[in-house]
C-alpha cells in the first residue's frame, strides 16, 4: 500500500506522434514530438497556445494516451508499450498529477482526498499514512485536514491537489496549467510550492503552462505550435 519512493529515471520521448480524427473523420496529427530527454530531477516547461498539444504530451508521458507512433520511456521501461493495467500500476507508483481545475472529490475531506491515491492499492491505511498526509496538508499551508474539499477556496483546493500528488512520493510530477485557474498572487504561491517540492524531493517535473512568471522559473522549455514540439532557448 504505502508510497513507493521510486527513484527518478531518465525520461525520453522518441518520434512520438498522436493522430485524431477530425469532425469529418480525416486523421489530423495533434502531437508531433521528434524527441526529448530529461535527466532525473530536471524541471521543464511545456509552453504554447491552447490546443497546441501540451496536454496531449503530458498524457503521453503519464501513459494515459498511447501514441500512434514512437515511444515514451521511463528509464528502461517503454511506458507506451505496457498493457493498460501495467500502465495504471506504473502511473500509480511513479506519477503525481496536478490539474488546472484541481479535480478534488468535493464530497470528501481534504485528508481523504490526499489519501485517495493510497486507496487504489491498499484496503487499510496505517497510522503512518495518515500522519504523512496530515504533515503534507500542513506543509502545503492548510490548517484543517477535516474540512470538506468542496467548501474550500480555489487556492486551497490546488494546495490539497498538490498534497494529493505528493502522497506517494512520486519520481515524476506532471502539472497541467496548475496556476491558470488562480489569481496572480495565489498562482505564484502555488508555483513556488510545486517547484520547491520537486527540487527538494529530486523528482522530475514537467509543467504545461501559459503563465510566463512560472515558465521563467523552470530550467528548460519546450514550445508547442500546432502539435509540433521544439526546444526553446530562453
Amino acid at each position: 500500500m504505502a508510497s513507493s519512493h521510486s527513484q527518478p529515471l531518465v525520461l525520453s520521448l522518441r518520434d512520438v506522434a498522436v493522430d485524431r480524427a477530425d469532425t469529418n473523420g480525416r486523421p489530423i496529427r495533434i502531437l508531433d514530438v521528434a524527441g526529448f530527454t530529461l535527466a532525473p530531477g530536471d524541471c521543464i516547461a511545456l509552453s504554447g497556445p491552447s490546443g497546441a498539444g501540451k496536454s496531449t504530451c503530458l498524457e503521453v508521458v503519464a501513459g494515459i494516451t498511447v501514441p500512434d507512433h514512437g515511444v515514451a520511456m521511463w528509464g528502461e521501461i517503454v511506458v507506451s508499450k505496457l498493457a493498460e493495467s501495467r500502465r495504471d500500476a506504473w502511473r500509480r507508483d511513479t506519477v503525481g498529477f496536478i490539474f488546472q481545475d484541481f479535480h478534488l472529490v468535493g464530497e470528501l475531506s481534504a485528508l481523504q482526498n490526499v489519501l485517495l491515491p493510497l486507496r487504489f492499492s491498499g484496503w487499510r491505511l496505517g497510522g503512518e499514512a495518515r500522519r504523512r498526509a496530515c504533515r503534507l496538508i500542513e506543509h502545503v499551508g492548510l490548517t484543517d485536514p477535516g474540512r470538506r474539499a468542496g467548501l474550500m477556496s480555489r487556492g486551497e483546493q490546488q494546495r490539497v491537489a498538490i498534497a494529493r500528488a505528493l502522497i506517494r512520493s512520486p519520481a515524476l510530477i506532471l502539472a497541467d496549467e496548475p496556476t491558470a485557474s488562480l489569481d496572480a498572487e495565489t498562482g505564484a504561491a502555488v508555483a513556488d510550492l510545486i517547484l520547491t517540492e520537486a527540487r527538494t524531493s529530486g523528482a522530475t517535473l514537467i509543467v504545461a503552462s501559459h503563465d510566463t512568471a512560472l515558465l521563467a522559473r523552470l530550467d528548460r522549455r519546450i514550445g508547442f505550435a500546432a502539435g509540433v514540439a521544439r526546444e526553446v532557448r530562453p
Binding site: E84, R92, F99
Partner: peptide, 16 residues
C-alpha cells in the same frame, strides 16, 4: 466520466 478519468490519471486501475 471526467470524475472517474481523474481517478485513472491519479493511478487508479480500471478495476478500481
Amino acid at each position: 466520466r471526467r470524475r472517474y478519468a481523474i481517478l485513472r490519471a491519479l493511478g487508479a486501475s480500471r478495476t478500481y
